[in-house]
Structure formats: structure tokens, C-alpha cells
Design a protein around this nucleic acid. Structure first.
Length: 393
RNA sequence: GGGUAGGUUCCGGAGCGGUCAAACGGGGCAGACUGUAAAUCUGCUGGCUCACGCCUUCGCUGGUUCGAAUCCAGCCCUGCCCA
């Protein structure tokens, strides 16, 4: 493949490349490029937001380049202030290591394992002496750091910024020096950090890395970027039905965004939006599970939500034998929420939100008397809300 | 170190001795509508009973008072100005 062809492929879908000319020069050299992507294991799951950059990294791999996946076990304990309006809560070392484990596993749902170098940045940072830290710090000015929007908006809003937070860009930059990155991939919010990497590389006699910036994927709420801490994410490890269901809850507008960023193409403008959404959900579910599971998830979603046929739908099971006898509607609903769905709810909430509102139904009949006792039989379908229902076994 | 402004329920933010479980907005949840959605509308949003009422909560610890989120003292934490 010619440089021009590679360049075209590699810049597709990016927001910005700094600079395309530099990237072309590197490609011309003909050797495999070292392409860096850093992820901080601050949560146990990789989500679709991460996959935008991961997919780009895979493209590089497919063209024969070397992926360098940096697990920010050290930086995770500091917390990236990018886009943050407040200091991140610190993670313990154990949490970080556990997360790193699942992260790498999940990242290989996208990346080719054989062509990926995985490194932990704690390997160099934990060894660094205070002297070295100071030397690093001397290469960056406070003014540069304060130019960052994240910091000065917080400062303007009279909110605290702690000193360790302004270390973050320096650390991320140093990672680039350590791995001798030719290219770094990141979200647009990583621009500043990646540029610091360029500066540090130059200062250490390396050619500065090319910055490849990817658009940020909005989360399910359509407003904020996808993030575990906002609870608006679709995890790569979500089971098929859940993944499919979450994707179906997208607004039409967001669906177009997902099409662009995750599938790299627009949807058929002539088709019905809901069909397009089902296609999107099925394709992504197939990508992280398999086509059969995705098709099953789609079929089940149809019976459950389109046709509202709970009786025929695939539902979690409730073992009758494990239930205390003579439960009231409220007690039963609370029990099912807690044990089947892992959502402990107070009796008051169950009564108010669910029972009185008519959300709780047995085989389609409303159970709106909170204190009535319920007798369940095997095969019964107990609905707690639109999204929560179980089949009695 | 000095001065000053603050720390309120998931978040923002009112309250400034009783009528406060605490306005209002956001978020969240449930229902109606619909293409499961979005938008819109309605309701709920500390816990127990749900009827009265009771219990826990307004940075922490004590105190004043019949009674405190509201007053006082000490402590912890944060912003801003000064050094």
C-alpha cells in the first residue's frame, strides 16, 4: 500500500492529525511505526467510548505497525483531569491492578494480541527519583499548564486544583518518551497531553510523535462523553441482550453519531430510523459477542418490546422454591429487585414508584394493591417495570 | 501566618431558632404517549408505617434553648485577598 493510501485510511474518522505531513514522512520511512495508546484502568470495563481509539489503533496494526498499549496503572492513581470539573477520587493500587487485568482482556476484543506491546507506566514512574521528577517538571512551565481549559475554568470558578493533577500531562508525555512513540492516538480531550509528549520527546532527542485525535463518543444521555462515572456507557463486556437494549435507547440523533464513530459510515437515509437502530445495535453486539448472539438479542428485543409479548420473551428466572411463602406485592417486588436484578430498593420506593403506578404486573394483570399477598405458579411472568421482568420457575 | 467567604439531602443551590426531611433547578425513577426511543405531559425522589406518627440526616465534637440546618465554642476542610 502506498503512503498516500495509508495516510488516507489512517486519517479517516479523525478530528485532527498533527500533523498529516509528519505522519506521511514517517510512513515513507517504511519501518513499522510505534503507535501509542494509553488507557487508565480507572474502571473495570472498557466501553464503546474507548473503542473509537482502539479501532484506530487496530487499523495501524492491520497496516503492519506496532501497537503499544500503555496501561496507566500509575497515572490511574492520579487521575486525568481532562474534562473534569472536580478532582478525581483516588483509586487504590489493588483496584487499579484488578481493572488493568480486565482492561487488557477486553482490549483484545479489538486489538490483535500478537502485534500489541502492553506496558505498565508504573514500571518507570515507580522507579523515578524525586530528582528526576524535578528535572522533568523543569521542562514545563506553570503558564503552559494553566493554559489548559480544564484547569482555568476550575480556577475561574473558584474550585480547587491540586498540584498532583497538573502532573498528569507531564506523566502522559513522559510515557511517550519511554516507549519512543511515533504516533499517539487519543480523544480530542487529549490534545494538550499529547502535545506535552511532543515537547518532552524533543527535549530528549526524539522526533516528536504525531498526534492522532479521535472524536469523543457521547454516552447514552447524549450530552456528556461516555464514561463509567457518568453511568452512560455501553461496556464491551455487557451481555448481548443488555448491549442491544442500551443501544436501542439511543435518540435518533445520537444513533447517527454512533454510526459515524463506531461503524465508520452513515446509515441508510431511506430506511426507518428504528430499523437502522436495530441494525446498529445488532452489528455492534455481533462485534463484541458473535452474530448468533446478536441476532438472538434482536429477536428477543422484538418480542419483548416491539410486540410487548413478555410471555414469549427470554427472561431471568425466579426460583419459586427459594421464595418465602405468602409475600405481599411490595415484599415480592423488593425481593426480586434485590436478588434478580441486584437493585436494592426501599419498600417506600417500591410502593410509590412501582406498585401504585401500575408497573407491577402478573401475567399482564396489574398488581396495584401493595399489601395483597401473591401466589405465584411456575410459568408466571412477573413484570416489575418496563425493563424488569422475570419468569417464575 | 493574617483577613475574609464558605462546608446543606445524587449534583447545583435556597433556608438562617419552631410552620424543615428541608424551596427551586438538574439528574434519576415510574406512568401516559411513541418507533423500545427522543420530545411532551403526570407523579415520585432519606428510612419505617404509609393514616397519624416515629426514626436518621444539613463538615465534626460539645454547648445554649422547651425546641437548632439555623445561636455559641473548639476542631477539620475549601475558595478568595494579603504575607
Amino acid at each position: 500500500m502506498t503512503t498516500a493510501e495509508q495516510l488516507q485510511l489512517l486519517t479517516a474518522g479523525t478530528t485532527r492529525v498533527i500533523s498529516a505531513g509528519e505522519l506521511a514522512d514517517r510512513l515513507d520511512a517504511g519501518r513499522p511505526l510505534r503507535v501509542k495508546l494509553g488507557v487508565d484502568p480507572t474502571a473495570p470495563d472498557i466501553h464503546l467510548g474507548h473503542t473509537v481509539a482502539l479501532e484506530k489503533l487496530r487499523q495501524f496494526q492491520q497496516l503492519g505497525h506496532q501497537a503499544v498499549l500503555i496501561i496507566g496503572d500509575f497515572t490511574a492513581t492520579v487521575g486525568d483531569p481532562s474534562g473534569r470539573s472536580a478532582t478525581r477520587p483516588p483509586l487504590t493500587r489493588d483496584e487499579v491492578l484488578a481493572n488493568a487485568e480486565t482492561y487488557t482482556t477486553q482490549a483484545f476484543k479489538v486489538l490483535e494480541r500478537g502485534r500489541t506491546e502492553v506496558v505498565f507506566n508504573g514500571d518507570w514512574f515507580r522507579r523515578m527519583s524525586y530528582e528526576e521528577v524535578l528535572r522533568l517538571n523543569s521542562q514545563v512551565t506553570l503558564q503552559q499548564m494553566l493554559q489548559r481549559e480544564d484547569f482555568h475554568t476550575r480556577i475561574d470558578a473558584a474550585q480547587e486544583v491540586r498540584l498532583h493533577e497538573i502532573q498528569y500531562p507531564i506523566m502522559q508525555g513522559w510515557d511517550s518518551v519511554e516507549v519512543r512513540a511515533d504516533v499517539e492516538i487519543g480523544g480530542t480531550d487529549q490534545l494538550f497531553n499529547i502535545l506535552v509528549g511532543r515537547d518532552l520527546q524533543k527535549a530528549h532527542g526524539q522526533p516528536p510523535q504525531v498526534a492522532v485525535l479521535m472524536p469523543l463518543l457521547e454516552g447514552l444521555d447524549g450530552v456528556r462523553k461516555m464514561s463509567k462515572s457518568y453511568g452512560n456507557y455501553v461496556a464491551v463486556s455487557d451481555p448481548p441482550a443488555e448491549m442491544f437494549g442500551k443501544l436501542m435507547s439511543l435518540s435518533d440523533e445520537l444513533m447517527d453519531r454512533y454510526y459515524q464513530l463506531l461503524l465508520g459510515a452513515g446509515r441508510d437515509p431511506a430506511g426507518h430510523p428504528m430499523e437502522a437502530k436495530k441494525d446498529l445495535a445488532e452489528r455492534l453486539t455481533a462485534r463484541y459477542h458473535d452474530p448468533a448472539a446478536a441476532a438472538a438479542a434482536r429477536a428477543d428485543w422484538d418480542t419483548r418490546f416491539s410486540r410487548r409479548d413478555l410471555a414469549a420473551a427470554e427472561l431471568p428466572e425466579l426460583a419459586l422454591t427459594e421464595l418465602p411463602a405468602g409475600l405481599t406485592v411490595v415484599a415480592l417486588a423488593a425481593h426480586v429487585f434485590a436478588t434478580v436484578f441486584g437493585l436494592p430498593k426501599s419498600n417506600g420506593e417500591i410502593r410509590r414508584q412501582f406498585v401504585t403506578a401500575g408497573a407491577v404486573q402478573l401475567n399482564g394483570a396489574r398488581l396495584d394493591d401493595p399489601n395483597a399477598t401473591v401466589t405465584l405458579r411456575p410459568g408466571d411472568v412477573l413484570r416489575l417495570s418496563k425493563k424488569h421482568a422475570v419468569r417464575v420457575r
